[in-house]
Amino acid sequence: MDWGFILERTISTMFGVEVMVFALAAVGLNVHFGYTGLLNFGQVGFLAAGAYGLGITVTYLSWSFWIGILFGVVYSIVLALILGLPTLRLRADYLAIVTIAASETIRLLVRWRRSKEITGGAEGIGEFADPFYDVSINPFSVGVRYEFGPFSYVGRDMWVLTVGWIVLILTVLFVKRLMSSPWGRTLKAIREDEDAARALGKNAYFYKLQSLMLGGVIGGMAGMLQVIQKGSIQPDTFNPVITFTIWAILILGGPGRTWSPVIGSMIYWTLIAFLENVLRDLPEGASETLEDTIGLSDFNISQVRFMLVGLGLLLLARYRPQGIFGSREEMALDDR
């Protein structure tokens, strides 16, 4: 086994596109769940809203890419209102049901044959992202591979990553500032006990709606960055597994903590890449033994690495339920 090679390939994922996109999506979910206690099981719906808001504006309406970005944000807000207005007055679990259903509804609606003219149906949308790479301030050349020590990215990704990480860090700081304000204090109070907040004069419904919109817009931005990097919008990439991955990342980092979505995403994707690289580069004897005993082959390595990550999450839930950043004492206070 060539550990140097394994580490080299693994380490580049640490600041890669997936880490950046999922961290941003998890920042949005952290606003929902970590700070407000909202059970949003359809975060991928917001990613889709952002992505299609951008794609439809550019290809169907033929408006500029930058107006498309604006529409991605608007679509996310509209989705938050559609989900929140009828459900946030009800018990918390109603939002959970509605969000998971809505995110699947969105996916099925955009890939529907009859919406093909607008959303591109099952084939999706392409050729909308060029203005992003053509801006004059982009210092990177598309074809060139850039290397810094162990990190290595192609020029196209370099520009997405630069913009993406700046957006991510600014968003985290923005959320941090909000959550240390009286507005954020009210959200946390609603998370702890909605009725207590209402008795003290806080309009819990309105705050929850604001929280849903804020986290939704952040999710929408993650969706836009994802499809800008891909250069195309595919409806089936917005499947529920994405939502569950975002949840895993947030729980891994520890909900309600400033940097936990970022660190959680780094750990999650680095672990996935590490396992993949190790499994693909096992010494001869080991790989044959594994193939004979559990049937491990090149075809199912990607499934096996998810199983191993799942096992890791189980162990985390057992031995460190508060996540990487959470405090055990705070967790114990939950048992009321």
């Binding site: 909000l178 304000s181 009286p182 954020g184 806080k202 604001q210």
Partner: peptide, 9 residues
């Protein structure tokens, strides 16, 4: 007033 979203920032 810091309990309003924009003022909070």
């Amino acid at each position: 007033i810091g309990e309003h979203f924009w003022q909070a920032l």
